[in-house]
């Protein structure tokens, strides 16, 4: 496949595990771990899909998602949001901000793989 996924997450061992399973599934994986310049990295990497954590140092995942949705080039890109809070309020916030899919920690590898594969369908 060789499709590009960008993981924006600040927990190094989550990054490592997810990177591994996605690489093994044939994805080209790039990672980034803070909020400040996340949008610059999106533009530079030009991914086909983004996995975005809600709680990031520097900037909230919701704000980054809004920037992504407002961007001319990347506005339509599938975004999978990760969060440690599964409350209805958080889910609604993610939907309002334009998340393609929302996943609550702790998720399983197969959940992530399945979600990513689904989101990558044209």
């Amino acid at each position: 496949m060789g499709k590009r996924v960008l993981i924006i997450e600040d927990e190094p061992n989550i990054i490592e595990a997810i990177s591994f399973i996605l690489s093994r599934d044939g994805w080209s994986v790039k990672t980034h771990s803070n909020g400040h310049d996340a949008m610059d990295v999106v533009r530079a990497r030009s991914p086909d899909l983004i996995i975005l954590d809600v709680m990031l140092p520097g900037k909230s995942g919701y704000d980054i998602l809004e920037e992504i949705r407002a961007d001319v080039t990347f506005g339509e890109i599938p975004v999978l949001m990760l969060t440690a809070r599964g409350q209805r309020k958080d889910r609604e916030m993610a939907e309002r901000a334009g998340a393609s899919r929302y996943m609550t920690k702790p998720f399983s590898n197969s959940d992530v793989l399945e979600a990513v594969r689904e989101l990558a369908q044209p």
Partner: peptide, 18 residues
């Protein structure tokens, strides 16, 4: 604290299943 615990649990779960 709960966020921290959940993040680590996620990492462990992911790593263990690999």
């Amino acid at each position: 604290s709960i966020h921290e615990v959940l993040s680590v649990v996620t990492a462990i779960r992911s790593t263990a299943s690999i």
